[in-house]
Amino acid sequence: MSQLEAGMVRSGMAAPQAQGKEGSPWTGLWAVVGKEMADHLTSIRMLILELLVVLTAAGTVYAALQTLRSTVGQDRFLFLRLFTTAREPLPAFVGFLGLLVPLIAIALAFDSVNGEFNRRTLSRVLAQPIYRDALLMGKFLASFFTLALVLTVIWLLIIGMGVIGLGLPPGGEEVGRMLWFLVATIFYGGIWLAVALLFSILFRQPATAALGSIAVWLFFTIFWGILAQLLARTLRPIRYGFVEEVLAQARLELALSRISPNTLYTEATIGLLSPSVRSFGIILPEQLQGILLGTPLPLTQSLLLIWPQLTGLIAATLLLFALGYVLFQRQEIRA
């Protein structure tokens, strides 16, 4: 707890108005976390989402196992394929996660602050000897821990199914990659959590906040790719058909598409779960000299490859939370 607190303070997230005030802004934080997590874990909303995810995991992994059984012994990274192997008509589990994680995250947070307003509990809670910091942070952490808990359970479930289905234990390298994949997935959820929390501060109606969060998610999932393409074509048009022009356009499109957390998450997933992937950009023939295509990278090299994506996911989570935090501090609490 103290480490976490210290970390938060150091990263500049201490309350702006806590300066010169008595006591820690985190007084009562764990009381809030405990209460909120208990709420999440006993809510019917969570139950439905958990069921949905477990069903998806069971379905896709079962399908993947059917395919993978035939290749046992030929593949060094059999366990990673559990997550990435798709079998018609089902997409791979990671594909599902890209949809389900934002859904869970939004469901966890869209009514966290406005719900307190509407139930008129906010002024009563804030009249206790705690700062607003503790309340908001506690709500965020509780949702975050719940999300992490759910994802970890499913992750373990999949590995367990894999051990039974394949009859092999995962290797050390595989476990490492899967762990990092779990971390990336949790922070991908963290972004949507922070978005939903932000909207729950901005809008008094939980329905508006939920709709707003889903709209942002849909925008990045469906429209941002198209928009990035259009923007790249407009800003870096190909006039004469030079290689440089084509490259510049492609690079811009890639850079733009990486604003979307979906792109970041997809790339992080690919880098972690497909050890042979060496780059996400455009590879020129001369860069391929001396490379044995298809050979896997060691975990450290794959991590290096997806490091910007991973830190991007974490940074976006913190940034969005900080924004919500400032807004919440400035909000008048009277209904």
């Binding site: 010169g20 005030k21 008595e22 006591g23 007084t27 709420d39 139930r119 008129r120 509990t121 906010l122 002024s123 009563r124 009249a127 206790q128 000897p129 705690i130 700062y131």
Partner: peptide, 23 residues
Amino acid sequence: ARQPLSVKSRVGYMPDSIGFYDE
């Protein structure tokens, strides 16, 4: 404004139309 925790641990506040966690 400076010592809200000391104040709030000694003062009980009942807001108008008080709300509880219904569940």
